[in-house]
């Protein structure tokens, strides 16, 4: 059963709807004791990374999250929170995965936010991307991206530059795209996470 970390950053109706459709059970985490009821966790999030981090800090859950040893998936800004730092609000983040969240550079012909369906190229053999083809489209909407890093990038996408569509370190995973809005393959990814 998945525990969804509630810290006031963004709406989760679409995420819980996707889990309902897939028959994946879940509950909400509002305090430290709640973590014990679940065997895996999702950290959702939309909006401003610096503001999201401030909200997460207000919950007092940060030390507990950093110490988690069960599968944990950050989605969109929830993924960016796993990184060391974001240029959005010049904010220090959880630093669970030591990479940086950067702003897309101005580049003629490339609009920001990066909005729409783009190809995702995962490393072969990772169970999070099982049964998902190597160039499958996922739905993105973001103005900041996580740098590509050979050690932590689990899947890459190209927009202006190569960046991390997904990161991975031990039990922590993150996806920049929205699996709950990414059609069939997004649902496959959520299903895969529920079985990790």
């Amino acid at each position: 059963m998945i525990g969804i970390v509630r810290y006031g950053a963004g709406n989760i109706f679409s995420l819980t709807s996707a889990l309902d459709r897939l028959g994946i059970t879940y509950g909400m985490i509002n305090n430290e004791a709640d973590f014990e009821q679940f065997d895996r966790y999702i950290i959702p999030g939309v909006g401003h990374a610096g503001a999201a981090m401030a909200k997460l800090e207000n919950t007092g859950l940060v030390p507990k999250i950093k110490a988690l040893n069960k599968p944990t998936l950050g989605i969109c800004v929830g993924m960016q929170l796993l990184t060391a730092h974001s240029e959005e609000g010049d904010a220090d983040l959880l630093n669970i995965i030591p990479v940086k969240t950067l702003k897309f550079k101005d580049e003629p012909g490339f609009k920001v936010p990066h909005t729409g369906w783009n190809n995702v190229y995962p490393q072969a053999g990772n169970p999070l991307f099982e049964n998902i083809p190597a160039d499958a489209h996922f739905y993105f909407v973001h103005s900041y991206y996580i740098e590509y890093d050979g050690a932590y990038t689990l899947a890459s996408t190209n927009y202006i530059n190569n960046f991390s569509a997904s990161i991975w370190h031990n039990n922590f995973f993150g996806v920049q795209f929205h699996p709950e809005k990414s059609g069939e393959y997004g649902e496959t990814l959520l299903k895969n996470f529920s079985k990790l």
């Binding site: 109706f13 709807s17 990414s182």
Partner: peptide, 10 residues
């Protein structure tokens, strides 16, 4: 709400 429950695209 009904659309969000059933549809997996934005």
């Amino acid at each position: 709400k009904a659309v969000a429950r059933q549809i997996n695209i934005p």
